[in-house]
Write a protein that binds this DNA or RNA. Structure first.
Lengths: 223, 223
DNA sequence: GTGTGCTTTCACAATGTTATCATAATGAGC
DNA sequence: GCTCATTATGATAACATTGTGAAAGCACAC
């Protein structure tokens, strides 16, 4: 059960999302504009705030900025605009996700769940580096550290690990892995993957535990 | 390209939506009332059904309820009055989204796309999880938790459970299960299913209750 | 061309999964 | 309550998948 704040000046939208969210067992609070949203966020701890961009008194972006001054509550933006700069601008403000109108209430709720789970996932991300316990991965520098020691992975091992990590907690079939890591034009053996998984595991030391085998399916990076 | 069924007694509305949908490259079928919509939904697999609430012979809600007995096809409701909201969000109906008249065809199509994308995504980050009491199923991670404990299912058990859950509350014959879970090219014994149901039940602990036997027919995941 | 890693393939062992069958239990109809 | 049809269950043999080590194949630098 999450505590959700929905801020939108359109009553219809508030109601629809509220109905769906309450059906999912969440507790929903409403705000009719940005100012009220900021005030409520100051007083109470929400698990997530769903906010329209266009609101009277204080728009969504400004409200987001305000809230970020005192809290890190995840914020999901509802926007009528699709322009990319809008999104970028939003992410700079600390927006966690975006849904463009018109949206289906189901989609909004799905994203709410995704954001909240993501925020309680169990890995810290700083810049382009992710860390899972003593396993540190830097995507841009193409570095992997195991308990502070730099691991020496081959290119394919990097690629495989990066793809697994970027899709952590998602079950990946051998086909999917071949397609995404090796390329759609690779017509090799399925078992090639197994061998690379083997080597990757051997190189990850104690953190080989993150790579789990999904029998009859493929592999998954599980945190 | 989606296969769309539009059910409305007003020819004008059907035509407008059809025109837009076909322009988008979709295949559109028409039904003039609820009864016909139900019959067509039984025979064919649509990606989405767009349905008016007010229709002769069988209204949209009843049609939706009927269809849900045998299929989980996403349904988008068109309603004339805003007062119908309350009814719409009687979720037993299983409506996925709604649009209030007068609507722009563009909006309808936008929602159609949103709904279908959600339903066929499978690549949704983390929020792809359903929970029935203490039974938690995550399709993307291929995880099943029983009262918080991870269940260790075999591939076939996963596949079977996933199929049952994706068709929850729908009666499934052994033939249907064999075809969908085992594949059309499997020519094994019917009793094979019983054995897998047995093992699945054993693995679900207290939640074996969700799998009900339909004597002389097959099985059903009932919540 | 040679050497050096890296990648792929392969074979075999280890392990896990599935289908089938026999038998027991259950339910429906009379 | 009896009979017949259907489903539940346990055992087991057949089967499939994965882990692993070794070796062949490749690519690239020198």
């Amino acid at each position: 059960m999450y505590k959700i704040l929905i801020a939108d000046d359109e009553q219809k939208i508030r109601e629809v999302i509220k109905e769906y969210a309450e059906y999912d067992g969440h507790e929903v609070y409403e705000a009719v504009d940005g100012r009220q949203a900021v005030d409520m966020a100051k007083e109470q701890d929400f698990d997530i705030i769903i906010m329209d961009v266009m609101m009277p008194r204080l728009d969504g972006f400004s409200a987001c900025k305000e809230i970020r001054k005192f809290k890190n509550t995840p914020i999901l933006m509802l926007s009528a605009r699709t322009e990319e700069y809008d999104k970028l601008f939003g992410f700079e403000m600390g927006v966690d996700d975006y849904v463009v109108k018109p949206f289906s209430p189901k989609e909004v709720l799905a994203r709410v769940n995704a954001i909240i789970k993501r925020n309680t996932a169990g890995n810290e991300q700083v810049g382009d580096t992710v860390k899972f316990e003593g396993l540190e991965i830097n995507f841009t520098a193409r570095d992997v550290f195991i308990d502070g020691e730099k691991a020496n992975l081959t290119p394919k091992e990097y690629d495989l690990l990066f793809y697994l990590v970027k899709n952590k907690n998602i079950a990946l079939t051998r086909n999917k892995l071949l397609e995404e890591v090796w390329g759609y034009d690779f017509f090799g053996d399925d078992r090639t993957i197994d061998t690379h998984i083997k080597m990757l595991r051997n190189n990850l030391g104690p953190y080989r535990k993150f790579i789990v085998t999904l029998r009859g399916m493929g592999y998954k990076f599980q945190v």
